[in-house]
């Protein structure tokens, strides 16, 4: 990418970003209600952890506050993904069904870019911060103070995690090129990523293999969480697997998109 194209995409994104903020502020009550909704879901999960850890001190090698940190990390990743991409990808089936995608294909920017980033959700950033607060509080309860290097690796792992969320949702949304009523596929995203909230070691057998290697959602929150709570462990093998999975699934989603578009154009002409 040359400097010029980078600047063009940057400027386009800045404009879209501004529009989204204006829209969010125009519907303030709705904005606040969404934050309430997200927080209810989040605290429900913490209650669930509490119910589990009433019965035991450890699940595998995870203590209660380590699992809370894992769920907080999952919250940060999924909320960041949702603020940047979720609404846009969830709308893709509708764009395909109504033919509005044609318009976006005519724009002088990459179509995957424009369908992915049209709208930005500020409410999810707020709830993402609450997740980050829970991570910080868990570290306090665990009396663990990660160093600067760990925090940087954690940030990288979060980015990889967001990339995997994006790829999973994008692939599901792209299925709308073949299936007319693809709204049901959107639920598939939430069902899949819900696996990321639990310690990786609990999964076994074929289930483990599928969601560790083929649809690698199990790693997404586990790798970053371990970086923070297990300072003694080497983070590299986990990061390498997560990074590899992120890059591979992004490339795969890109390839599927290109393939779907070829089909889409040929169908309408």
């Amino acid at each position: 990418m040359t400097m010029d194209t980078a600047r063009k995409y940057g400027a386009t994104y800045a404009l879209l970003f501004r529009n989204s903020l204006v829209r969010d502020m125009a519907f303030k009550a709705n904005f606040i209600l969404w934050i309430v909704t997200e927080l209810l879901w989040f605290f429900g999960q913490i209650v669930f952890v509490d119910v589990m850890f009433r019965q035991t001190d450890r699940i595998l090698d995870w203590t209660k506050w380590e699992v809370v940190l894992l769920i907080g990390t999952h919250q940060v990743i999924s909320q960041l993904f949702q603020s940047f991409f979720y609404v846009n990808l969830a709308n893709l089936p509708e764009l395909v069904r109504t033919g509005k995608l044609d318009l976006m294909l005519l724009l002088p920017v990459d179509a995957q870019f424009s369908v992915s980033v049209r709208q930005f959700g500020l409410d999810n950033v707020v709830t993402g911060f609450v997740g980050a607060g829970i991570v910080a509080y868990s570290l306090h309860r665990l009396a663990v103070a990660p160093g600067i290097a760990q925090w940087m690796l954690y940030a990288f792992a979060l980015l990889f995690g967001i990339a995997i969320h994006y790829a999973v949702m994008f692939v599901l949304a792209t299925a709308s090129f073949w299936i007319v009523r693809a709204q049901g596929l959107i639920y598939g995203y939430f069902n899949l990523v819900s696996l990321a909230r639990y310690p990786e070691g609990i999964y076994r057998g074929a289930f483990r293999f599928v969601f560790l290697w083929i649809l690698p959602v199990i790693l997404v929150a586990n790798v970053p969480a371990r970086i923070l709570v297990r300072p003694g462990e080497s983070p590299w093998s986990g990061l390498l697997q997560l990074g590899g999975a992120a890059i591979f699934s992004l490339l795969l989603s890109r390839a599927l998109w290109k393939f779907a578009l070829r089909r889409y154009s040929s169908a309408s002409s």
Partner: peptide, 13 residues
């Protein structure tokens, strides 16, 4: 999927 995931968690518990 989430149901089976939950069962693995209960299994570990």
């Amino acid at each position: 999927i989430p149901m089976i995931g939950g069962l693995y968690l209960w299994g570990a518990l």
